[in-house]
């Protein structure tokens, strides 16, 4: 956890310094704002990992002497198979085509999106098919 935090925070600090130099020197706003956004995007997860790294015991994957058996227990919940990513992908496809071929395509697009979101949420709660 601590290494992850260090990677992100050091990137964020570098971007912050770079942005200060760039913005003061160039007085150009677009780039300055975009690098600030990058800085924040590094600090947000970086600080989260840093906060947790001080409050939790090192995980087996952070322990250089860990044995494979130390990872025993629940790793996570993995869906078997699911049709909803495909449905949501097709919904996005139809909605993007609405940008080109007409707003009416938003009707099936949003309908499919709603169906996919409801279906995927239900699958997460009930557990889906294999």
């Amino acid at each position: 956890m601590r290494t992850e935090a260090r990677v992100l925070l050091s990137l964020g600090v570098f971007f912050a310094i770079m942005d200060a130099v760039y913005w003061i020197w160039s007085k150009e706003d677009a780039g300055g704002v975009m690098i600030i956004a990058g800085t924040l995007l590094c600090f947000l997860p970086g600080l989260y990992y840093f906060w947790w790294s001080r409050r939790m015991r090192p995980r087996p994957e952070d322990d250089p002497h860990a044995e494979p058996a130390q990872g025993a227990g629940v790793v996570g919940t993995f869906p078997g198979t699911s049709i909803w990513p495909f449905t949501l992908g097709m919904a996005s496809f139809v909605m993007v085509l609405a940008l080109v071929f007409g707003v009416w395509l938003l009707v099936p697009g949003l309908g499919l999106t709603f169906w996919a979101v409801v279906g995927a949420t239900g699958e997460s709660r009930r557990g889906g098919q294999h």
């Binding site: 058996a69 629940v74 790793v75 993995f78 078997g80």
Partner: peptide, 10 residues
Amino acid sequence: MTDVLERPAH
């Protein structure tokens, strides 16, 4: 059902 994946102790 979804797979609740557990790493076994062995």
